[in-house]
Design a protein around this nucleic acid. Structure first.
Lengths: 327, 327
DNA sequence: CGCCATTATGACAACGTTGTCTCCTCATGG
DNA sequence: CCATGAGGAGACAACGTTGTCATAATGGCG
């Protein structure tokens, strides 16, 4: 800036006035300054500006499990859309389902003075965020709740959705239903398992623990579950996939089976409607989840001091055929 | 920091020493300082730190068309992985295929003093980046080249891949092949169209412009193209989808047709292998694209001054069945 | 016992901006 | 001809850090 000032023959304050469109600068002076800026390729340093003005940095942090997972990238997009409408940018980070990494990212973002943080938590302990929140960085949890602190949270109806899935299958005559979920350490997985159990109870089907597998979905774990639970004379006649990753691996594991059992997937996923038969899913609006959480975050950023809110978004079962297969 | 200093009864410089793990601080003093930091929830301001040290901000910018598109989110993930290994964070932005928005994002990122920028360009004019690059912000273009400047670029072999697709279809007896591509303003779309034409020539098939549609893929535009080119007695017997968006819309438009023409998609996509018949694709390694571009960017950030590089990554045709349908 | 090297600490400036205050000039009106 | 005020511009401090240098207290050694 001082280079620009020297070249234009003015003080740096005048340059500052020009770049900030402040009034009371003579047009001729402004023109000289603009020319100098142009010539030197000057771009003001936003970091210094924010420091001096004590203003916000104009960024928010988003921590998810994996920005490459279509579920989270849709979330990312929804958040970005809201952020842009508030003139903010988004710093993203993947926790890789590792609570240390989550913590590291969150604290790093705070040190960068983001205006707020959206977290899909990996861990169950969030006490480390209390000082940051007290210091004025709002935090909103989404998809999963905070472990041990009270904070704004936006969830989907995991419990109800899974109950619906069970009910749907039972209505189509199934009594032996398997449940393949993600690691039970993950809130949504545990909650959906709870829904599965509750669904069994409500529908008068005995809950059979031997038909449940809760493990991080990989081609191997799912293939093994298929071999154990969905093969042979005592196989389950229907299966519920606990999330989109499980569903995809499950479909692949079943691709060459002579008979695909009835199936419902929690989470919709692209092309589910084009498979044969199309996959019945418990769908939820991922964009709505991102929107709701981001809107809540910006309300906090703009000073909303009301009590922490907990929002639960509805889900709905989309019957497409795979759940209607007779036992 | 001064609050911490006061509470600990030391100077702020000593606090600085403690938070930076500098030697020559008495253990007792350090302990008092740490306690004060703990008590006040102090977190150092990285913005101020970077300003004073003149060091990098530890962030890189990534501009893509849409962070929610699985293609770009996989790219995002690959970039993040490299960035993390270099201790950097990623600021992302979606240009929405709008060159003004791309420019706005890029200049904003520069003003934030990111260490470098990765751009999947939306526009064809990038002169605006020249001053920034001269000022020391490296820029690497990926998936598409810069419009009117010389810069590092990482592309995939669009031309060769589409030629392969045509060859594959011709080998299976097709002579009337349709091509559905994205808007011809997009480099990759134009390049793939060029590959289509070249493929026709090389395989002795007459290039028929009436079998080509180049438009932003939406359910409507694709349905219209299907009605026009893939229906009726003079319909093409095979079709090439110019990218994953086109492919998905195309599959949906064809879902209820009595007969699905032979098909090859440029870009692989999840579940392509599980459709009936599985979709033959021209696959390229999106992660490799992101990795290569990010590695190149970090080489520049670390001072590599060699001439701008242009990298073209190979693609390979994955035959799955949909391209093997007889005409 | 005095000197020097070492250790521990603080004062101060600087990073690149912007807010506040002050100063100067010139036109206007009485 | 002077008081008034508006318009234009600069000096200076401050934002929260850290690098440089200076200073004070310690201990070892001749």
């Amino acid at each position: 800036m001082s280079d620009v000032a020297r070249l234009a023959g003015v003080s740096i304050k005048t340059v500052s006035r020009v770049v900030n469109d402040e009034p009371a600068v003579h047009p001729d002076t402004a023109e000289r300054v603009v020319a100098a800026i142009e010539q030197l390729g000057f771009r003001r340093n936003l970091g210094a500006r924010n420091l001096r003005r004590g203003s916000t940095t104009g960024t928010i942090g988003l921590i998810v499990e994996d920005v490459g997972n279509p579920f989270y990238s849709e979330l990312n997009r929804a958040v970005e859309r809201i952020a842009t409408s508030f003139g903010r940018h988004v710093l993203t980070g993947s926790s890789e389902e590792n609570s240390d990494r989550e913590r590291e990212l969150a604290l790093e973002f705070c040190a960068r003075r983001v205006d707020g943080i959206l977290v899909v938590p990996a861990g169950m302990q969030h006490g480390y965020l209390v000082p940051e929140m007290r210091a004025g960085t709002p935090v909103v949890f989404l998809d999963r709740p905070a472990g041990d602190i009270v904070a704004d949270t936006v969830l989907v109806d995991n419990l109800g959705g899974t109950i619906d899935a069970v009910t749907h299958l039972v209505r189509h005559g199934h009594r032996r239903i398997a449940f393949l979920g993600d690691s039970p350490d993950i809130f949504t997985a545990a909650e959906r398992l709870r829904g599965f159990r509750e669904g069994c109870v409500r529908n008068g089907v005995s809950y059979d623990e031997s038909l449940v597998v809760m493990r991080t979905p990989t081609p191997e774990t799912i293939a093994h579950a298929v071999a154990t639970l969905l093969t042979g004379p005592s196989a389950a006649t229907a299966v519920i996939a606990g999330n989109n990753r499980v569903a995809v691996h499950l479909l692949r594991a079943l691709a060459h089976a002579e008979h695909r059992p009835a199936m419902v997937s929690f989470d919709d996923f692209e092309l589910a409607d084009l498979l044969d038969p199309p996959v019945t899913v418990v769908a939820h609006d991922v964009s709505a989840l991102g929107h709701a959480a981001a809107e809540l975050l910006f309300a906090r950023i703009q000073g909303d001091q009301s009590a922490p809110r907990k929002v639960v978004l509805p889900v709905h079962l989309v019957a497409r055929g795979s759940g209607e297969v007779a036992p």
